[in-house]
């Protein structure tokens, strides 16, 4: 893993500012190809900012993000972004197949219909996530875990190499979380790379191979056991707690799967 050509994403002194506030400060790290990377840290540590800056949503104030490596399949890797599950209104009139088909829309011109290859990719993604039998159901009838698998299927149907997940475990019960773990391990076996923003260290330790521990600056990076050591977590969370001491504690909103 030491050889640079095996790193599908390389961050070099990445700095992002929102006005005067620094969201990410001088982050340098490498993401090995085919790893499951937990992007961990306290609230406001820059986890989501890191994911979004990979997509080019935030201009970097300094530094660079290098995408791709020397492997022939990875010179121009494709991204799939999976937003937080609760950001979507599940009363929206759409079926599961339609949502998964959205993966193929951006590549089509307005006058073009989806072609046979598109439908093939959609069917394969539905089958891979085992929601083929739900395909013509309205999305409001899905359980929390099924909703997540629908969005993962959409990401798979995009034909992506790198998957960016924003808090994938946030809305899941234990069973759905176990299912997600299985899916992520299978993806890893297929050489897919996953970066997931996580605020729960338990989930990061349990399900991921690597971790980037952020607290605006990079606190630690590497295999999970090393990056999430007691000392590193203390540095990330307690340092942040000092900064936010003045802010009143905000109760977390619980999200219950239907």
């Amino acid at each position: 893993m030491a050889h640079a050509s095996h790193h599908i994403l390389r961050f070099r002194s990445v700095t992002v500012r929102y006005g005067r506030r620094v969201a990410l400060d001088d982050v340098t790290a490498d993401v090995p190809c085919g790893s499951l990377v937990a992007v961990a840290g306290p609230n406001g540590a820059g986890k989501s900012t890191l994911l979004r800056s990979i997509l080019g949503w935030h201009p970097l104030s300094a530094g660079e993000i290098r995408i791709g490596d020397a492997h022939t399949h990875h010179q121009l890797p494709r991204f799939a972004y999976v937003p937080q599950a609760h950001q979507v209104d599940y009363d929206f009139p759409a079926t599961v197949r339609e949502v998964v088909a959205q993966a193929r829309w951006p590549a089509r011109r307005p006058w073009q219909r989806l072609d046979a290859a598109d439908h093939e990719a959609i069917a394969r993604a539905l089958a891979e996530l085992e929601i083929g039998d739900l395909a013509s159901r309205p999305i409001r009838e899905l359980s929390g875990g099924q909703r997540q698998r629908m969005f993962l299927a959409r990401a798979v149907a995009q034909g992506a190499d790198i998957f960016l997940l924003d808090e994938p475990f946030a809305a899941l019960d234990r069973r759905a979380a176990r299912e997600l773990t299985h899916i992520l391990r299978a993806w890893r076996a297929q050489g897919r790379t996953v970066l997931a923003a996580l605020h729960e260290l338990e989930a990061a330790r349990e399900h991921f191979t690597h971790a980037l521990l952020l607290s605006t600056r990079l606190v630690a990076a590497g295999p999970v056991a090393e990056a999430l050591s007691e000392a590193a977590i203390h540095a990330a969370f307690d340092a942040a707690a000092c900064v936010h001491e003045a802010a009143p504690p905000v109760p977390r909103t619980a999200i219950f799967p239907r």
Partner: peptide, 20 residues
């Protein structure tokens, strides 16, 4: 009709719309 996909995506999932 011309912008049906953009309009639907933006209404359903603005983050995904932007990411694509």
């Amino acid at each position: 009709l011309w912008f049906r996909r953009s309009l639907a995506l933006h209404a359903f999932d603005p983050a995904f719309h932007r990411a694509t």
